[in-house]
Structures are given as C-alpha cells and as structure tokens.
Amino acid sequence: MKRLLLGCLLIAGVVQAADERRSGAEFMSPATQAMQRDDAQNPAMLWTAAGEAQWNAVAGSSAKSCASCHGDARTSMRGVAARYPALDAGSGQVVNLGQRINICRERKQQAAPWKLESEELLGMEAYVAMQSRGMPVTPPQDAATQAAAARGKQQYFQRIGQLNLSCAQCHDQQWGKRLAGSTIPQAHASAYPTYRLEWQGMGSLQRRLRNCMSGVRAEVPHFGAKELVELEAWLALRDQGMKMETPGVRP
C-alpha cells in the first residue's frame, strides 16, 4: 500500500515537473475560452475567411494565386506555421510567417508586398497558421534560426524602458498574478495572429510585443524589425511542443 502510494506521488511529481507551461487561453474567462474554442463564435474567422479568398485569388504580374503553386492550403500548409520564424535561404535572413508570405508575393507572384499589420496580411497569416492548429510548435534547428533565437533570449531577459523591466520579470516570475485588471500570462505565443477583444480586431505577435514594450516605456521597434523577429524566434523555441491555437482569442 505504502509503495503504491509512493508510486502515485512519484508519478504526480513527474507529471507536474514535465510541463508547467500554460497557454494564455487558460488564464482567460470561460466566455472568452468558449469564443476561441467555437469557430462559429470566433471573430477571427472573419479574417481567416478573407485569407482563404486571397489564397485562391490571382495577384501580381505573374497572374498566379497562392493555390497555383501550393494547391490546397489545408494539406500543403499543414504544420508550416509551427516552424516559423525560419531562415529564408534567398535572403539569408530569419523571417516570420508574415514576412515569408510577403517574400512569396514579391518573388513568385510579382505583386506588391502587403503592408505589415494590414488586414490582408493578418488574414493570410491567420489562414495559413490555422492549418497547423493543434500541432506542436517545432522551431527549426538550423544554425541561423538558433542564433536568432539566442539573441531573442538575450532580449527576453534584458531590462528595458523607464520601468526597467525585462519580459522575464513579469512572464516568468510573476505569471498568474494581476497587473491592474488582468492576469499576467506566461507569454506563450502559439495563438497568434490573435483576435484581441481590447483591439476589437486581429493583431500579430509583433503588435503584442510592441504593446508590452511601450507599456514599460521602452523604445518600440518598427513592425518587421530584426529585434522583434528574433524575439519571436526565441518565443517559438520557448513554446516548443506546445499546441498551435491560431486563430486565438485574447481579452
């Protein structure tokens, strides 16, 4: 009996130690969780529907749509978003999913790239990322992406701004506590792009990062800045194995 009990305790201990990471969704109210869980309620579906239409729409002087090369996104894009940010061999840069989409637009479709954080790009990003929903985050293992993630990690622990706070001080050390009216989550990014109730619209992970940076009164990098992509690469590494939730809903 004693041995059995000890065994149970050990198993419980192992399970607890295995993963203390909790998605931001777990910190939300049941109503907001239901909104994310149920596609018929999730407002982000307006963006993914627009993304799907764009996927099949011809663009640029190549007169090609995304579907002309990639076929059905539901099979060809499955698991793709879970691997970003990743190295773009063409430019030698580590890029996030949005930038990758724009590279395709420029190089393959010969179309004008979408403005970062535009409704079009967010819609396409959400549509592509949705195909990886439920799959584990699997950041690439190549040297360039790893190096970017390492620089991102450095930033994550770097105190910034007039408030002199690092990301880790809130999201690693104080998660679960309250910051004004809202619960501090663990900063897992696998639900982006996300419909945020506060924004009353869709936003990328970079928008969220910039929000936090201006919150601690730090200088905010522009959309698409290398620092932000590196931070994204680190967050992907930190989220490794967690489930993709895109398109998420956040309060």
Binding site: A40, Q41, P43, M45, L46, Q200
Partner: peptide, 9 residues
C-alpha cells in the same frame, strides 16, 4: 442561428 459580421462599429 449564429450571425457574425465584420464591422468597425
């Protein structure tokens, strides 16, 4: 029946 529409309001 559930109806959702995109509008800035």
């Amino acid at each position: 029946i559930r109806a959702l529409i995109g509008h800035p309001m």
